[in-house]
């Protein structure tokens, strides 16, 4: 979380901050997708395992760091978002674009790096995992594309700010 002390001094609290809005909501998006992954696939469906014995030490360490970072990102994003709203600096179009970009980026990262490269865990066990991997990564790519499209639209909109 950056400090807000580097903001222009004139008229504090009235200027929209599109870049910061996008970045903060991307952080929230990453953390929300990570939470969805934990709640839906670990806790509800029980497809993912708490600990997959084939996990390497590096995988375990990266998993621990990521999981902790996601929790911190959720809290940090919440407070940074609250600060943007308090200063009336939230740019909604950019914020939504950032949120979708964050959702998609995490989904793709999890699908490619965690599942395939580090092999921390698989989506499901005891079945052919290929269709699951494709569904997982395509959904991530779609979210990422939707976020990118919203970002382009937000950047083009004339009132790139609170009015959009």
């Amino acid at each position: 979380m950056g400090s807000s002390s580097d903001r222009p001094a004139a008229a504090p609290g009235t200027r929209a901050e599109p870049r910061r809005s996008m970045a903060v909501c991307a952080v929230i998006g990453v953390a929300v997708m990570a939470a969805v992954d934990e709640i839906v696939f670990h806790q509800i469906l029980h497809w993912h395992h708490f600990y997959d014995r084939s996990t390497t030490g590096a995988g375990l360490l990266s998993d621990g760091l990521l999981h902790t970072a996601e929790l911190l990102m959720l809290v940090a994003g919440f407070f940074a978002h609250a600060d943007l709203r308090r200063r009336r600096a939230l740019a909604p179009a950019h914020a939504w674009a950032g949120f979708l970009l964050g959702l998609g980026a995490f989904q793709l990262f999890d699908g490619i790096v965690d599942h395939k490269l580090l092999r921390v865990h698989q989506i499901r066990y005891g079945v052919d995992v290929t269709p699951y991997d494709w569904a997982w990564n395509i959904s991530g790519a779609l979210l990422l594309l939707a976020g990118a499209a919203l970002a382009v639209r937000a950047a083009r909109s004339p009132a790139a700010g609170p009015a959009s």
Partner: peptide
Amino acid sequence: RGVTLLAVGAAHGVLAKSLYA
């Protein structure tokens, strides 16, 4: 303080998972 919390949280989580096995 934030980075310390991250490092300690990760070390705690990794230890917990290793105890599971």
